[in-house]
Design a protein around this nucleic acid. Structure first.
Length: 563
DNA sequence: GGAGACGGCGCC
DNA sequence: AAAGGGCGCCGTCTCC
């Protein structure tokens, strides 16, 4: 593997020339003293901005007052970044950058082309794979500790980075096919601007801290009850359970302990403790201290392609796993500003609808066309049951069966996860695939694929047939990924229709199939109507012939707004 | 004292 | 023999 040499490039410490339409310009920035876990927030200091038109001559400035002029000169060209979200967010601290479609992101494009095939998409990974060039990691890691002024060696390496980005672009451009290019232009590129526009969610920090304190104290009571051991240590917990006579347990996770809860006080205490411990550690005081900003809002770092399926992910903090099932207390802490309300919309039974489209299962499609509840109707067709919406069998048996059918759930999983006896689980799954035989054919067809599978809009997921779980990936990725495609299109379309804002848009959170916006109270009804319309239109144009349904609500906090 | 693996668990 | 997909974050434990 090669490394770049200084004599391969020329560094000019001046503004770039005026770009012409059609110029392809790689751009890269460097920042010093960035706070870890806050790379997505305005921390650190500007160090350099570099670009190259040809992979040889690099224009590089270190004076932040020249950023605007630098970018103005590049305006007519196509901008190439590796992880544009980062550079654009930080450049916006110095220059107004409007959403533009003349943009290429080597990271997102590589993810579009190779999700599932590779798991690492750093610039160094791409340079290694595509260019056979080694970008030294050591130098890259010196930027954080650096003082504001970069050393000569750091400047050279930042120039190498922008050259690598340009060369990776060239390599991708010759290889990318029409399908992947469309995904970029129609879905990921527009959605990138949504992520850059997101506002944070406002948090009632007082309420959160009271909650955190209570959970901490309750967790402490359990620690005091078992002073001889550490309840947070699975190893010690397993030892204790063995002493109590539960010798064949090989895990202490909740699923394995549920069967013994009625007879074992320790197991019961342990699970109580775990819940409180999780709440007070992951969602404790630190959460506020670490992430709440001076405007009382929380700004998460959303990765546009966070999962190989195409889903987003969220971190620092993760806004996708705030507790909601056992208690609404946490989501009550996410609030709207005084004159505003939160509007919260999610697609109902989104994944079963997508599965019915992909499989073209006639009976499932019929149920959705008749606007019926999929779980109730499946029970009727499978067993002749006549369930009400509140019948526990709907939630406890039918939901796992219908949803699990697109994941590859087995009767063993059903027993472990839902305490459904294996015999009954087997019966449920058999009845499901007997009744919905299109789904069985779809499943069996997907299971045979060994190369890649695609979403409705063509997003690829590369399979590794030698990897455990590959068959289920083939089954589930098109379903999960199509849902992600719809989400991205809907989020962009809504903002486009509502009125675009480059930063601090009305959109405040996105959770897989759920979109949250915060709007002035008097615009609430219009927002509800528009968001619902857009989400239904987008879903129905994707799964053509199958109606979509959106549940939408509003309120002063997230819990009340959630339908 | 930090990195990384692991067990565990929050959400969709 | 194993036994549902996708994430990110916590504490523990081990290693250096």
């Amino acid at each position: 593997m090669k490394t770049y040499r200084i004599e391969d490039i020329q560094i000019l410490n001046e503004l770039p020339p005026k770009a012409k339409k059609g110029d392809k310009i790689a751009i890269d920035t460097e920042w010093t003293q960035m706070e870890k876990k806050k790379l997505h927030r305005p921390t650190g200091n500007f160090a350099s901005l570099a670009c190259t038109f040809d992979g040889k001559v690099v224009y590089l400035i270190q004076d932040s007052s020249k950023i605007k002029a630098f970018l103005d000169n590049l305006n007519d060209g196509v901008w190439i970044f590796h992880n544009a979200k980062f550079d654009i967010f930080h450049l916006r601290r110095f220059a107004n950058i409007q959403k533009r479609m003349r943009l290429w992101d080597t990271m997102l494009i590589e993810q579009i082309m190779y999700s599932g095939y590779y798991s690492d998409f750093t610039l160094a990974d791409l340079a290694r794979r595509r260019l056979n060039i080694y970008l030294p990691k050591e130098e890259r890691e010196t930027f954080n500790e650096a003082s504001n002024e970069l050393t000569q060696s750091q400047l050279v390496y930042s120039a190498f980075d922008v050259v690598a980005t340009w060369q990776v672009y060239k390599s991708q451009r010759t290889e990318i096919d029409e399908n992947d290019l469309n995904l970029w232009k129609e879905i990921e590129l527009p959605f990138l601007w949504v992520v850059l526009s997101l506002s944070g969610m406002k948090v009632d920090s007082q309420a959160w801290k009271i909650l955190a304190k209570r959970n901490m104290e309750k967790a402490q009571e359990y620690r005091d009850k078992y002073p001889e051991m550490n309840l947070s240590s699975p190893e010690q917990v397993l030892k204790k359970l063995n002493e109590l006579g539960y010798k064949k347990l090989d895990s202490t996770k909740e699923d394995y302990l549920k069967p013994i809860l009625s007879e074992c006080e320790f197991a019961k205490d342990l699970l109580e403790y775990r819940g409180l411990s999780k709440a007070s550690s992951t969602y404790g005081e630190n959460w506020i201290e670490d992430f709440m900003e001076s405007d009382n809002r929380i700004y998460s770092d959303f990765k546009p392609i966070g999962a190989a399926t195409g889903r987003l992910s969220s971190s620092s903090p993760n806004m996708e796993n705030i507790p909601s099932k056992d208690t609404k207390e946490f989501r009550k802490c996410f609030i709207a500003d005084d004159e505003n309300v939160l509007v919260d919309a999610d697609w109902s039974a989104q994944e079963p609808r997508i599965a019915s489209y992909l499989s073209q299962d006639e009976k499932m499609i019929e149920i959705f066309r008749n606007k019926k509840d999929i779980y109730i109707e499946a029970a009727r067709l499978m067993f002749g049951w006549n369930l009400s919406k509140k019948d526990p069998r709907r939630k406890e048996l039918m939901k796992p069966t219908v949803l699990g059918a697109s994941y590859g759930l087995t009767e063993y999983g059903m027993e472990l996860k839902y305490q459904i006896p294996k015999k009954d689980g087997k019966r449920l799954l058999n009845a499901f695939f007997d009744t919905f035989d299109g789904m069985r054919r779809f499943r069996d067809r997907q299971y045979k694929i060994k190369t890649f599978v695609q979403t409705i809009y063509g997003r690829k997921f590369w399979l590794n047939p030698y990897q455990k779980g590959s068959e289920n990936n083939a089954l589930n990725s098109p379903v999960q990924g199509s849902a992600a495609d719809a989400l991205k299109i809907a989020a962009y379309s809504f903002l486009d229709r509502w009125g675009w804002a480059d930063t601090n848009s009305v959109m405040v959170n996105i959770v897989h199939d759920e979109i949250l916006i915060e709007v002035p109270e008097q615009l609430k009804d219009a927002a509800i109507q528009m968001l619902k319309d857009v989400m239904i239109e987008v879903a129905e144009s994707m799964h053509d012939g199958i109606p979509a349904d959106v549940e939408i609500g509003f309120g002063k906090n997230w819990a009340d707004a959630h339908p």
